[in-house]
């Protein structure tokens, strides 16, 4: 058996989950998540530094999802909503974890993998330089992205990005990303 998205989702949604969702990633969904998480962070009385980091990273990861989900062919539409993605936010000890998942066309994997590996290999100073270079030299794409999202996440968290590409069929993989935000950074 290949990779099972439901099993993966279930494994993520153990204890300590603040929010778990699988389905269409729409603008309304993003707005709801941001409101909900902001309220929860207030309730936890989290220090403002962490609150802002979590919120910022969440905005970037949701908008990355929103802009980059690849649509499965119609024959899967009973099984997976359009713009299908997953989002799980959990808190373990003092660290927050944001996990996202979405379908990606196999031909895009190499580019994305190389990009994340590159980001993970850089120091804080090098990430800053990379961010500034992209900011100053690359045009915004029609999707509005601009290639800064992952660099920004790595810079703000100070942690490595954890990713997996699991084969779904010949054309599609399921891409999962785990982001950790810890207090000491």
């Amino acid at each position: 058996m290949g990779f099972n998205i439901d099993d993966y989702y279930t494994a993520l949604t153990g204890d300590n989950v603040l929010l778990a969702y699988k389905g269409s990633i729409t603008t309304d969904f993003i707005n709801n998540v941001l409101d909900t998480v902001e309220a929860k962070l207030q309730d936890f009385d989290e220090e403002s530094k962490i609150r802002k980091k979590v919120y910022n990273v969440l905005v970037e990861s949701l908008q990355n999802l929103y802009h980059h989900i690849d649509e499965l062919p119609d024959k899967f539409k009973d099984e997976y909503d359009i713009k299908f993605g997953i989002l799980v936010i959990s808190k373990e000890n003092s660290a927050y974890k944001i996990s996202t998942g979405n379908f990606i066309r196999s031909e895009k994997i190499k580019y994305l993998k190389d990009k994340i590996d590159k980001i993970n290999s850089l120091s804080k100073e090098e990430l800053k330089d990379m961010y500034k270079f992209i900011l100053n030299h690359q045009k915004l794409s029609a999707k509005g992205g601009g290639g800064l999202g992952l660099v920004d996440i790595a810079r703000k968290t100070g942690n490595k990005l954890n990713y997996m590409f699991q084969s779904f069929n010949n054309e599609f993989y399921f891409y999962t990303l785990e982001i950790f935000i810890s207090e000491s950074k």
Binding site: K52, Y55, N56, V59, E60, Q63, L135, N136, L140, G144, G145, G146, L148, G149, D152
Partner: peptide, 13 residues
């Protein structure tokens, strides 16, 4: 600014 996303960061530039 309290928050801005990376898409805004290019526009602010």
């Amino acid at each position: 600014l309290e928050y801005f996303n990376t898409s805004s960061s290019k526009c602010i530039l």
